[in-house]
Design a protein around this nucleic acid. Structure first.
Lengths: 228, 228
DNA sequence: CGTATGGTTGAGGTAATTCAACCTGTGTGG
DNA sequence: CCACACAGGTTGAATTACCTCAACCATACG
């Protein structure tokens, strides 16, 4: 499916935003738009990586299953995020849609050529990459020192922010895009612990469960304080 | 101090290796060589970032101290590694030398200009960045699922490999470049737990302590197996 | 309806933390 | 040269946060 950059919801934040009108038009010719449903695999670990992509709508997870079959979610990818390893022969990790998602897919060789041709694109990718690296390290910082309660609070706060259209404050009411199992896998906890921590947050009057997935943030300040 | 790329120990692996002879000469004119002693700060969190650097010798840590004053080591930087955030106005993290280290320092604006001028350099940095991201995610994968014993074994195995000049097998005998406290901070454990795990590895005949810092790997295979 | 999937809650076990004592090497000043 | 302080390291005992195992509940779906 053809690309429509004019109506792209992330055209000001994605890597391609760094390009001029003409350059973007040229790049757009190489790409294709595709929709993925929840659970669909975008890239599978071990696959030949012949494509890369920008996420325009939805939410992806990057995950790794170890030898025992346990899945660990390494990162979430939000709209404007870039996926696809440009320098690995095969994919290290699985990339799977957590919600109905739309991506701009590019053949890897074409994209590589574009990087060489457009320094602005290289810079933009470098910047994205640096941000991803920063996020990953922030994860690491969270991972160890903080208690299960802080991790869950932090995740809910982050998801609230992601659900909001405003950059400054989070959404008051939103649906969790992840199952308890996925949250547990992302935070390095068990399903039961995540469940208990959410119960605790509810008992303390910080959030309310409006449905199995629905969350209402009753006290955003305290939620941020616990997580941050 | 002037740069001597001809004798640089990482000239085949660092980002600048992607450049042609002429390009590298030009880049070299912008940089300066500097030596740091153990404990010296290369960049401090909050500093204006007006420089970036390639590590040629030694070992650095990237660390973060939280509001309570607890330090968490986010990553180690080995020779050929690149440090300095190109896109942040100020440094997010501290970068500190763990051993006597040598770096090639570049003014950030000059390096940015070089990136725009030399596509090969941009690619090389993108590649480094992708590798760092992969390493950070590997850390995350380790962080949660694995037991303290596995984390310590994994770290010793990694340090053994880093101490070796051969890429395929680790050094049999080496000195730990980190204190127990630094190991604990890197792994998200306590000093005591790290100490106990090393004691356990010694009791199991997998390593020997030749001095407070000296480690002799008695059974590399079993060490690797434990570390994953 | 019955089955599956996801979620909550409880009881009990355990690995890692916390708190605390003690050891070891190194450097400093009397 | 000894005394002492100090930082890093080891070891032990008690505590606790999280995990494991297990039962049960809710919603969706063929």
């Amino acid at each position: 499916m053809k690309l429509h950059c004019d109506t792209c919801p992330v055209r000001e934040r994605a890597a391609c935003a760094a390009l001029s009108e003409d350059e973007r038009t040229e790049l757009a010719r190489l790409g294709a738009h595709r929709t993925f449903a929840r659970g669909d695999t975008v890239f599978a670990a071990g696959d030949d990586l012949d494509a890369c992509a920008t996420l325009t709508e939805g939410l992806l997870k990057i995950s790794h299953v170890d030898e025992d079959g346990n899945e660990r979610i390494l990162s979430l990818i939000h709209p404007a995020g870039f996926v696809g390893e440009m320098f690995a022969p095969v994919a290290h990790h699985d990339v799977v849609a957590l919600t109905s998602s739309k991506l701009c897919l590019f053949p890897r060789s074409d994209y590589e050529a574009a990087i060489d041709r457009f320094p602005a694109l290289a810079r933009a990718l470098l910047r994205r990459s640096a941000e991803d690296l920063y996020d990953a390290r922030a994860q690491i910082a969270l991972d160890s020192k903080r208690s299960a309660g802080a991790k869950v609070a932090n995740l809910l706060a982050a998801l609230s922010r992601a659900a909001s259209h405003s950059p400054c404050h989070g959404a008051e009411h939103f649906d969790l895009p992840l199952t308890r199992g996925e949250m547990a896998s992302l935070l390095g906890l068990t399903i039961e612990t995540v469940s208990r921590q959410i119960t605790k947050l509810e008992q303390d009057g910080i959030v309310e469960r409006t449905s199995t997935r629905g969350i209402l943030v009753a006290d955003a300040a305290r939620l941020e304080a616990l997580g941050g």
